[in-house]
Amino acid sequence: MEAKAPRVSLAAIYSCFFWIGLFSFGGGLLPWIQREVVNTRKWMSDEEFFPGVALSQVLPGVNSTNISIYVGQHLRGAAGAATALGAMLTGPFFMVLLAAASYKIVLGVPAIQAAMAGVAAAAIGMLLKTAMSAVQAASKSLPPILIMVATFAAIEFFKLSLVTTVLLMTPVSVFLCWPREKPDA
C-alpha cells in the first residue's frame, strides 16, 4: 500500500459515484468524475487521473465505468473498484426500469425534448472545462503539446478510431516524454 494517499471509506466512494451515475446525462460522466475526484475530494491528481482516461479508451467496456473502476482500484483495491462500479450503475439501472415503463409518453413531449437538449449542451460545457484541465496538465513542455495536437488531429481530421489513435500515439508519446531526469516519485 502506498503511504501517500489518505484512506478513503467505501461509503464515500459509493456516495461519490452514485450521484455521478444518477445525474450524468448525455455522456457527461467524465467531467463530473474528474471534478469530484480531483478537484473537490482531492483523491487523485490530474496527472494520476488522466492516464486512466486514456487506458479506459483501449480497454473493453464503457469509458465512464472503466474510469470509475480505475479510480476505485486506486483508492481501495478490489473492494473500491467493485464499490465504484456498483454505485455508477445503481441509479441508471432503476432509471432505465422507470423509462421502460413510461418512454412512449415522455418521448412525445416537445418541452421535455427541449429540456433534455439543454442538459446535453450543459454536459458538453462541463466536458470543455475537463478538456481545459487536461490541456493544462499536459502542457508542461513542447513534446506533450505536439502529441496532444497530433492526437486531436488524428481523430478530427484523419478520422481514425479512438482505439487506433491511442495505440498509435502512445508509443510515440512515451518515447518523446521519457523522463530524462530521475523520476521524482
Partner: peptide, 18 residues
C-alpha cells in the same frame, strides 16, 4: 514514462470529444 506519455494523448482525446 507511460503516465507522462498517456497524459497528452488523453488531453487530445478529450478535446476531440468536445
Amino acid at each position: 514514462a507511460l503516465e507522462r506519455g498517456l497524459l497528452p494523448v488523453a488531453a487530445g482525446l478529450v478535446c476531440a470529444g468536445v
